[in-house]
């Protein structure tokens, strides 16, 4: 069963019919030719497909395209329009925060979300006292970043480099 949807991906507007079963992830990868978001598990268990969906880091593998008519999506590729790397991407490069690269676009989008959430003072499981106000610096300590980035599995295990990369991009002291 098909339905018409309109979506903006990395600044480009697309209007097309989709099978009601099609996820945003498969729509991007198999219909729109945008393979920046990766499929690692297809069930929200690895984070490789993380994108910014309507401004927040989310998992397009668990989102039906038909339910996101009008959505704005930014992938890791879209973070670098005209080839200029986003500070998070540059920090990942500088810190060698990846090896095989497959989880990397998801890590990058997730990190952008983490920095934004920290800026809003959102607590995490690593926050000792959730009742207190949280500054961005307090929200981006090693343990905070590690917890907040835990939705992105890295089998090459670049975690030790990912945390300082996120801190560098956010401009906080490691």
């Amino acid at each position: 069963m098909d339905a018409q949807v309109t979506l903006t991906v990395d600044g480009t507007r697309h209007q097309l019919p989709v099978d009601t079963r099609t996820t945003l992830l498969d729509l991007m990868r198999e219909r729109l030719g945008n393979t920046s978001p990766k499929k690692g598990c297809d069930h929200g268990q690895c984070g490789a497909c993380t994108v910014l969906l309507d401004g927040q880091r989310q998992l397009p593998c668990l989102a039906l395209a038909v339910a996101h008519d009008g959505a704005e999506i930014v992938t890791a590729d879209g973070l670098a329009p005209a080839g200029e790397l986003h500070p998070v991407q540059q920090a990942f490069l500088d810190a060698d925060a990846f090896q095989c690269g497959y989880c990397t676009p998801g890590q990058v989008c997730s990190a952008v979300g983490v920095i934004e959430e920290a800026g809003r003072g959102w607590p995490s499981h690593a926050t000792a006292d959730v009742t207190a106000e949280l500054s961005p610096e307090q929200a981006l300590t090693h343990d905070e970043v590690a917890e907040r980035m835990s939705g992105n599995l890295c089998r090459c295990a670049a975690y030790v480099n990912i945390v300082p990369a996120v801190q560098q991009a956010a401009g906080v002291q490691a």
Binding site: T50, Q58, L59, A63, S110, G113, S150, G151
Partner: peptide, 9 residues
């Protein structure tokens, strides 16, 4: 529970 991405959804 879950992860930052999942909690956003």
């Amino acid at each position: 529970g879950a992860t930052g991405q999942l909690r956003n959804t």
